[in-house]
Design a protein around this nucleic acid. Sequence first.
RNA 1: GGUCCUGUAGAGCAGUUUGGAGUGCUCGCCACCCUGUCAAGGUGGAGGUCGCGGGUUCAAGUCCCGUCAGGACCGCCA
Length: 575
Amino acid sequence: MIRTHQAGTLRPEHAGQQVTLAGWVARRRDHGGVVFIDLRDSSGSAQVVFREEDDAHGLRSEYCVKVVGEVRVRPEGNENPDIPTGGIEVVASEVEVLSEAAPLPFPIEGASGVSEEARLKYRYLDIRRQQLGDALRIRSKATYLVNEVMNERGFVYVETPNLTRSTPEGARDFLVPVRLQPGNWYALPQSPQLFKQLLMVAGLERYYQLTKCFRDEDLRADRQPEFTQIDIEMSFVDQDDVMELGEALIGRVWKETLGYELPSPLPRMTYADAMARFGSDKPDLRFGCELVDLTDYFKDTTFRVFQNEYVGAVVMPGGASQTRKELDGWQEWAKSRGARGLAYVLVQEDGFGGPVAKNLSEAETAGLRAATGAEVGDAIFFAAGARHASRELLGAARLEIGRRKQLIDESQWSFLWVVDAPMFEDDGEGGWTAVHHPFTGPKPEWSDNFQDHPGEALAYAYDMVCNGMEIGGGSIRIHRAEMQQRVFDVLGISKEEAESKFGFLLEAFKYGPPPHGGIAYGWDRICMLLAGGESIRDVIAFPKTASGFDPLTAAPTPITPAQRKEAGVDATPKA
RNA sequence: GGUCCUGUAGAGCAGUUUGGAGUGCUCGCCACCCUGUCAAGGUGGAGGUCGCGGGUUCAAGUCCCGUCAGGACCGCCA
């Protein structure tokens, strides 16, 4: 090794030792006769002192240097209690510049306000900064913990292919041309879903993998075109078994990275409750402002807007003092979400304000505060219309209220399971579509008759939710051909279609498939939560921008005509 | 596909409402001074395609149109 010690590990007990350090010039304080350099390596940093004759004036930020010197306790009064190595300094006797650094595109030390574009282009410098470096270290630590827990529990780590076949359902596939078979294409997996079920047929019983998944959809703060899942599948299990494992896994990760003890067992909420109370299938329980169902309350109303399948409300504490501009802003906000607007009343000392108030009868206004729990000074937002859409609107309004009024306690963790989601939802064209995926089983009580009531049947599925974010989701799968056929029937998938899309899975299920179920956790999102990031880009070493561009490598790039020809991009597949 | 925000020196910003000389701030960079700092300090200096293209105007960073890039959201993401 070039060095004998790591800078961040030096303490007063090292005093008197001759050490060799290697790292980067973090900060320099040049006093002419004496020069201080903070030498940083992956362990932290330590102050190195040079005297005039050492000629350290030429050292610049982020030069990579080797320093030989003696550790000593700092002179009386010069200790810095704010840093771990503040009790000592290294008196340099020798310095070697291992490599120089050009002027930096942004500071490594100090100020954090740098555009993400610049940070991505010089990602290696961004990672040199403490925040991102720490985030990647937390991610690494958490990854080891996952492997530890899964190993302890007897899971078999299996790698599944990244070059596989396109399955038409779900997200858009990334496609890869195949030179050896011009005109034929691989797809990158959206998840190893079918493979892990095959591994259950294969008798492995317990499978897991930290695996990349690929989906060619528009990006968001919590979505990248390639992302990582902890993919898990288990045989001979019930829902409770998968949930127990998940709690143990996530609990261990939170405990050993953040020292936070997960409540055990985690609270469970049904999908129906979550929608009714929070207008979301992934409720953030860190604050109140629950939705109020006023459908009954307004059942005899003369106000036509409220003569609807569903009328609900959410209260904004202190919302009555909003300016006209702010209240108009809510209308714009609602319209941007595809709603007509967001009716509201303001609860004032002398009655109700706002344009909707005059449409309500005396009897309706009289009980409104009691019905909604609103206090003087609050605003009440209403949504009326189709039940599901109205609740989603109110749920989104609730989150917006939480943000604007800073009701969310960011120091809290709110974990829960959301269970009993519907199996199917209206596809808007008179048919049904799978809420989870077509291999998700019904809850046991629906196993015989889900096909007769597709709108009501509940899936044997579960989502783990943390702070209003879905961090994992799974289900108990169908393992009987007869039941799978009934699901395909509901979804309008013909035998031929099923055969062509999932034939290999159905074939496998002829050979004694065990009952099985599993779950997949969104690893980037989990690491983002652990690292306190605002975007999964904050925990990914080399992420892409919202348009799928990588500013560092400038990928994607055009291909040459020769590459195009060789790859067989334009070839017609043989019949 | 849609809505909104942003783009000014290497970084972060102000200036754009009300058009008038690239006007300014903090940091960084370069030179010099400086023997106890730790966001060191001082003096001086360099550094600009105001994202790009077009238009209006005597005059555009500023107004208009288009476009590109980044970000947030809606659609989408079984």
